[in-house]
Design a protein around this nucleic acid. Structure first.
Lengths: 388, 388
DNA sequence: ATCAATACTTGACGAAGGAAATTATTAATC
DNA sequence: GATTAATAATTTCCTTCGTCAAGTATTGAT
């Protein structure tokens, strides 16, 4: 039997949760290894794993998949049965829905985009319903093994209640998105802020695996940051956290729409770059793509704009490193289409401003496919299953 | 019998630890209240509290101390027996030791200062031995109820091993301070970074009580910051955390000794203020006290120096609020002798640069007696007892 | 074949915490 | 003043989780 959405308790005991989470995030592990890593006896691991195997969520690796030889009885590592259950993740932007179906290991199985004609809650929900329907009933036959949906929205989102308090891009206020999406799709829904969702995905299934702390910086229209400290996501007491884009890094810099001055976002956000590039080139209709093209062709003025922007981002990242000292930092986001223009300046700014040993913090700068945001939403719904 | 230092396990079970910590930090509480707050049954609280009462660490409030009337059996709130055990805390600076004896509630009972002639490890330890001896054998008779010593040192300190990795002011590298201080004093020693110790004291016994997250900013020669996020102190993966002083807030600002530019400390550290005040006044021998006096007398040039410094600190604090979103922020430190000159500018900088709802974060700006640092060290040793 | 080494399983046991009944102590009401 | 309602604390019994120690399984080495 498949557990009913919402009523399931996949992992009854703390030990079971720990075992499943460890196998999920750190790949196949033998029971003894798990016991050592989790500070449990191997007997406890055996007991915790049994129901998970019976429910089909874990499996023992076949003899052929096992590790190399050695004295003694060979280990039977436990692995996650990836196709035991599927999860839908949808990222909601102002003009588009991006949806994916992921397996239990957060691997993307199918993806689809949908343009949005408006941002009215009803319209968006109807479109979500159609998108989810198409994803689940299309090839792959995911419908009968899918019970959960994750939604990623920018703005102030309360994950525990599933309420979207305020989303500037969508013009939503106090939308009970969890309930409404649940009745629109028939799935158990988890709602999370988009950057936090992406951070969660990275914590469980990406570069954050095993790290006690790390940061994920997204560069684009806005510049945001998800933080994991002491193994837990940072939420912010007043709904504000990770606003790296509004750290003031230049006392004489441009004014920001937030009321501050010299914010990273006012220097390195997409709009700010376009504005500066227009000033430099004298072309009032220049787009961001034009600016990137000009800079790549060697235009020094436009190149300086990207250099200044990268530098500001680097200083902002150094502020993160100096304040919370994450084990590693991932820099990504849509804006990183111009990856090559930013990267050296981000690194230079970071290395100059990082204090002492903080420069040792590895910086991964890489573009990120847009579907990754939807995958983050799916990852959050996987987390909800495990923590339930 | 008093538990042997190091071997004691004051609180055997997690429930007992939770109960004792709650009573310690949140004052007298009845068993039912504790049960509700900790998510335990009242039976569990009764069981956990009994051995603590028998050992003399907790007591029931006398009938006269109890709370007002109401229907039903009156509560017998549990309170900490403050004089059950005493703790020594010593802050080590380059030219002075500051020592205190605190009771179990971290109230200071006695204090003493000692000048230091040199920063050699042996000399400092000998002086610590004498200071501790004088504190414990002086009036009050603390000797037989004192088993623990906390040491606060600036720099990179590993609390778990008691190793001072690097302390610039003392010119120490890899000093196994815990072992050496233990044999010098006969007490069980805990060593912690000074800012973290102060933050811990504030978390358990000050404004941080009950907050899931908060920040403590210290202003002085250096500008530092202790962070508590999700109820836990932030340590930094590479030994760096809370370095608010080296956040870059002015791209065209002065170069900092750390190699960065426009660091908060390079604008608002004591040395930076003296340097700027000398430039403005043309008096190359001006001291910080002179500068404060001039500014208070209305010297506009010097006033502008303090204004700029306060503003930079405010922007740095806003960076903390924007990134981690603490529930509240305490600003303090030796430098706040010039409290009145800084305060409005700190607030102004913070309010301008804090993003959205982050401005709601309450800012306590207050000077801090220097003994407070030593009290922080004692608080850390109390924490060690409870967590043991 | 036998032994050593390692992985895993089993069943008994102990301890922590919960549920519910019991006792204690007060205020309000008749 | 006795009774009742309300709340606090304790006691007893029980469930449950995880450990311990013993035993089984499976390999390589001799």
């Amino acid at each position: 039997m498949f557990p009913e959405p919402g009523t399931s308790s996949l992992t009854a005991t703390p030990a079971a949760t720990a075992v499943f989470t460890a196998v999920l995030t750190e790949g196949p592990l033998s029971r003894v290894t798990l016991a050592r890593r989790l500070g449990l006896s191997s007997a406890a691991v055996t007991k915790a794993a049994r129901p998970l195997i019976e429910m089909g969520y874990l499996r023992e690796l076949a003899a052929t998949e096992r590790t190399g030889p050695g004295a003694g009885r060979p280990a039977s590592p436990l692995a996650v049965q990836a196709d035991r259950e599927f999860f839908v993740g949808v990222k909601i932007t102002a003009d588009e829905l991006i949806g994916v179906v992921c397996d239990l290991c957060a691997e993307v199985r199918t993806a689809a985009h949908r343009p949005l004609s408006g941002t009215g809650v009803g319209d968006v929900l109807a479109e979500i319903g159609r998108l989810v329907g198409d994803l689940l009933d299309g090839p792959g036959g995911y419908r009968d093994r899918t019970h959960r949906l994750g939604l990623a929205v920018s703005g102030d989102v309360d994950r525990t209640t599933g309420l979207v308090r305020y989303s500037p891009f969508l013009h939503w206020r106090d939308v009970p998105l969890r309930e409404r999406a649940a009745s629109a799709t028939g799935l158990a829904v988890t709602v999370e802020n988009d950057v936090k969702a992406l951070t969660t995905a990275e914590q469980w299934f990406g570069e954050g695996v095993g790290a006690e702390s790390f940061a994920l910086v997204t560069v684009g229209t806005g510049i945001g940051c998800g933080l994991v400290v002491n193994g837990r996501l940072v939420s912010g007491s007043y709904g504000v956290a990770g606003e790296i884009g509004h750290i003031g890094v230049d006392a004489d810099g441009p004014e920001c729409h937030c009321g501050g001055r010299g914010c990273v976002e006012a220097i390195a956000g997409t709009e700010a770059i376009v504005r500066q590039a227009r000033d430099r080139s004298g072309r009032p209709d220049l787009t961001i793509d034009d600016a990137v093209a000009l800079a790549r062709r060697g235009d020094e003025g436009i190149g300086a704009v990207f250099a200044r922007a990268g530098n500001a981002i680097g200083i902002g990242i150094a502020a993160v490193a100096n304040l919370v000292g994450p084990a590693r930092i991932v820099v990504s986001g849509e804006g990183l289409a111009a990856y090559d223009l930013f990267e050296p300046h981000i690194r230079a700014g970071f290395e100059r401003q990082a204090f002492g040993a903080a420069v040792q913090c590895p910086l991964s700068i890489r573009p990120l496919p847009f579907e990754e945001w939807a995958r983050g939403a799916a990852a959050v719904s996987i987390q909800t299953l495990v923590a339930s």
